[in-house]
């Protein structure tokens, strides 16, 4: 146990503490990944399969067949008892506990079977019906657009104004700089959650309730972003700025031709953070956007959630589509994200 808690490691052969460590980590993989994978798999199940209890791990689809004389494809069952035992039949309809079936080679002859005597013929397959329905029946594209618009525009605004402020705070000695820094620290102490009521009223007076701008603008200036960028810009030598001044560059040009490109790593971190904040944002949009045509994906997901009857089929598909962009971003930029979140405290 003691060895297990220290940095000392197994030499050539694996120590028992190493086995324990790997066991814990594999357990971690199951607990952390499992639920999300389960949800993703479930989203590819048919409505019927979703009703199946106890649930099965993989998505199954019942075999169907087109039988002459019937309009739609009929579900295929295997008979387990009676005269037809072992044969595959197509079910025409079901009345109570009795199923009317036909044999595919004798489509004219209806046979009655107790439903307990037949078993559906199934194979593993991904059903895309939930996704199709999402696009057909719900305004999914509108929610997607709302979320994307808010995320992209808000991040762009945040990057520009935060980097401008960070530039001023890191590269100019002016009267009042200390006060401004104190104000920025002050805003760090006042999270949105404690000014919800007055913030709502201010945004309402500006006519931005039920407008995407009402979500974008209030959070565009982030103290975290100013800090992060300022800290990075402090490491850019002042001599480079002086060199640019000797080279006839205006201060604005120094900002966008010298400072911005040189701060690219920090800007990338802030961009990723901002994209995450905005895409996942919930409480403020919940307050500021009350009409469903302005809903973001998060709000739409939440509105699907009924107290007792939840349309899980659509909800699962939509959840997967909502987490997909974040997973994609994460897969490509894992290193940036981890360091970014670790250095800023995530907020």
């Amino acid at each position: 146990m003691a060895n297990f808690l220290t940095r000392t490691r197994g030499k050539e052969r694996l120590h028992w503490t190493d086995w324990l460590s790997y066991a814990y980590l594999l357990f971690g993989v199951v607990v952390m990944f499992g639920p999300v994978l389960w949800l993703a798999l479930s989203s590819f199940k048919t409505e019927a399969e979703l009703q199946h209890y106890p649930p099965r791990l993989l998505p199954y689809i019942q075999k169907t067949e087109k039988i002459p004389g019937y309009d739609s494809a009929l579900p295929i069952f295997k008979v387990t008892k009676g005269a037809l035992a072992g044969q595959e039949v197509a079910q025409v309809r079901r009345i109570g506990l009795v199923a009317q079936v036909v044999r595919p080679d004798e489509p004219g002859k209806l046979v009655k079977l107790p439903i307990a005597d037949r078993k559906p013929v199934e194979h593993v397959a991904l059903a895309t019906s939930n996704y199709v329905k999402l696009f057909k029946r719900f305004d999914f594209l509108r929610f997607l657009w709302n979320s994307t618009f808010i995320t992209v525009v808000a991040t762009a605004i945040t990057l520009v104004i935060n980097s401008m402020a960070a530039f001023a705070l890191s590269k100019y000695a002016f009267r009042g700089r200390g006060t401004v820094m104190a104000l920025v620290i002050g805003t760090l102490m006042i999270p949105q959650t404690v000014v919800l009521v007055p913030l709502f009223l201010v945004v309402r007076d500006l006519g931005m309730i039920n407008s995407l701008w009402g979500v974008i603008i209030p959070g565009a200036a982030t103290p975290t972003g100013v800090f992060l960028l300022r800290q990075y810009m402090l490491t850019i030598p002042d001599e480079i700025l002086d060199a640019a001044r000797m080279d006839n560059a205006s201060e604005w040009k120094i900002y966008w031709r010298i400072i911005l490109p040189l701060s690219a790593p920090a800007i990338a971190v802030l961009a990723i953070l901002s994209i995450m904040w905005r895409w996942n944002d919930f409480l403020w949009p919940l307050i500021a956007l009350t009409q469903s045509k302005f809903f973001t994906l998060q709000l739409a997901l939440n509105s699907f959630r009924g107290e007792f009857n939840t349309d899980w089929a659509s909800l699962l598909a939509m959840t997967v589509l909502t987490l997909l962009p974040i997973v994609a971003v994460f897969a490509f930029l894992q290193k940036y994200i981890a360091t970014g979140i670790a250095t800023t405290g995530g907020k």
């Binding site: 030598p237 001599e239 480079i240 002086d242 060199a243 640019a244 001044r245 000797m246 080279d247 006839n248 560059a249 010298i258 490109p261 040189l262 690219a264």
Partner: peptide
């Protein structure tokens, strides 16, 4: 006059080349 308008050029201790 600002640095740009004096018509001078300067070579800095750290060279201050634009790294990008």
């Amino acid at each position: 006059l600002g640095p740009a308008e004096r018509g001078l050029a300067m070579v800095f201790q750290s060279y201050a080349l634009y790294p990008h």
